[in-house]
Design a protein around this nucleic acid. Structure first.
Lengths: 346, 346
DNA sequence: CTGTTAGCGCGTTCAT
DNA sequence: ATGAACGCGCTAACAG
């Protein structure tokens, strides 16, 4: 029976009116210091928590959230997933009317990124949700973004940025787990290679380290850059070269969502028996996971990340203190068997 | 900008007062048929959805939910987890004041179960949340439970019961995935055994079938009942017998949360190299997963199940139509590496 | 500095 | 059968 204590109770106990209580609640000043002190004490003692629904009912406030991510179609459509989660959060919080303003940039163009930031700033959002996957120096971003409003990073972190919360996976652990699975798959026979994205950021490097941490020093999987996954032809050439370099490859770890490209290649060449692990539950990857060309997919709940980002910003804007400074997503392991049931939980 | 249409808009458009609109909204009668028709049409056309927050603010209704599960300490404390999720949901929905009434039974006593049901019925709850793990004939339950109120089954299903929703895992798929992992672990050498609970219900049998489906016909893992996991001494005797029956055991699949008992035994005998897979993220299992005696744990989001159960009942009681008739939890694969990050997502 | 008041969307009397 | 009016907990404008 959680006794709900209201603003009226506080007023009565403090011997003031609800108007006064409201003023100290929102630091709107024009309140005698001692009065304010009493009210604050009472709030703590009673464990008063404002009724968000009544509060929002009253002011019908609409929060504008500025969102900065790569273009939804980049990384094989991956960025659609967090976008969906954000929309779901806004939908669920409907009576509160949250206005999501997406500003997407080409993750390979600095100009595009700057432009997106400028657009966002011009809108004067109440909060910012940012996937700091971008070209150029990370330091610059702190200056570009509008200051003094709550900021949430997701997917990757930018440690130097002051923020409300970071939401994402522990890249090292995620790589490490992939390493464990790969060793099970290959039973340590043959060699294993790593294929990473061109723009290897902090996040990707963590995954590489984690993966290698599961291998003995003297036998570290070699690292390649997937410069040529953009067309089937260049992809085939690139992969062929890999195999002519080292014909004994038994395992391939692709450190991002483009693992389906490697799967296509293995299918072409009839090499489905080779262990293949990659990232993210996107359409093309699903298909290859189901047919078994991809053995495991690591997932990071991109939809939930978007959802939580909007949710946390919403809470912050509505005067909910607290909340973790870091929400770590678990490392989900997907296989042909559990794939379907994961879809609603992306 | 999702134009929020209110009850007032409907009233204006229909040329009636909000009182009338409210009456048709809640089928409270005393409304002229044509008027009601007009209002209903307008509601559909405008896509009007009542503001839950305003609605609940107005009536301060408190819903009583009757909860029926095994005793929290049974199954190695497993049942605490869904309980936690239920409390979290009630907490989050705080201004709505939801009253959770737990009625727990001894899962090995029919009398205890009947008593719990009687208690629950006496309280006249507004909704029921039920984990149908119980002794005796399932058919009886339909008659015992109070009728006419929304019912939600979680963890296991009881197909013959009419219900709002079932929330749980696909047992077959979960067993099948365990089979896949076990074959990877043992690389198909030696033999593998299955240890199941004494009261093997529908749910457990599904897991067994799934597990075996991954093995060739002629080499099906044998099935044992864990009659003797209650004390260390009987446990050791039981397991010793298993190994004297078949000294070539390389893999053990325990089909419930008591896998930590098997782990204790393997530690005693220095048999940690044997593949061990079991269920559920509870304290004793966590420790053995971290030290590597347990190789994989399958989890089924028990906390989320409880959370969703309360949430769905709440929605149903507040006139939200729709929602899936089945919420399938994904089969989570836990290892020493991702264990920690899963804890908040149980 | 402080108290009063209207109103947010809705449910619920109580008259009519 | 229908409408007017009050109040849920809170915000914000206004009067003092």
């Amino acid at each position: 029976m959680p006794e709900t204590v209201t603003i009226k109770d506080i007023a009565r106990l403090a011997g003031v009116s609800i108007g006064t209580v409201d003023r100290v609640l929102h630091d709107r000043g024009r309140v005698a210091p001692e009065t304010a002190e009493t009210v604050r004490r009472l709030i703590l003692e009673t464990g008063f928590r404002p009724n968000l629904y009544a509060s929002n009912l009253a002011q019908a406030r609409t929060s504008t959230l500025g969102i900065l991510t790569p273009l939804p179609e980049q990384d094989s459509g991956f960025w659609q997933l967090p976008h969906n989660g954000m929309r779901r959060a806004a939908e669920e919080l409907l009576p509160f009317s949250i206005d999501l303003r997406f500003h997407c940039f080409d993750r390979f163009s600095e100009d595009s990124f700057r432009e997106a930031v400028a657009e966002l700033a011009a809108e004067k959002p109440d909060g910012i949700l940012l996937a700091p996957i971008m070209p150029g120096p990370a330091q610059e971003i702190g200056r570009l973004l509008p200051a003094g409003i709550p900021l949430c990073c997701f997917d990757s972190d930018l440690p130097e940025l002051e923020k409300l919360v970071f939401i994402g996976q522990d890249p090292y652990m995620s790589g490490r787990l992939a390493g464990k699975l790969m060793r099970l798959l290959t039973t340590d026979r043959g060699s294993t290679v790593i294929i990473q994205a061109v723009q290897a950021d902090y996040h990707i490097r963590g995954r590489v380290e984690g993966f290698r941490s599961f291998y003995p020093r003297k036998n570290l999987p070699r690292l390649y850059e997937e410069k040529h996954f953009d067309t089937p032809r260049t992809r085939t050439a690139f992969m062929d070269e890999l195999f002519s370099d080292d014909p004994d490859i038994r395992g391939i770890f692709v450190i991002n969502s483009s693992v389906h490209q490697a799967a296509e290649y293995l299918n072409e060449r009839g090499l489905q028996h080779i262990g293949l692990i990659g990232y993210d539950l996107i359409g093309p990857n699903m298909r290859h996971l189901e047919t078994g060309t991809i053995d495991f997919l690591i997932s990071q709940r991109p939809e939930l990340q978007g959802y939580r980002g909007v949710f946390r910003l919403f809470e912050a804007l509505n005067g909910r203190p607290g909340g973790e400074a870091r929400e770590t997503m678990p490392v989900d392991i997907l296989t042909a068997e559990n794939l379907r049931d994961y879809i609603p939980f992306r």
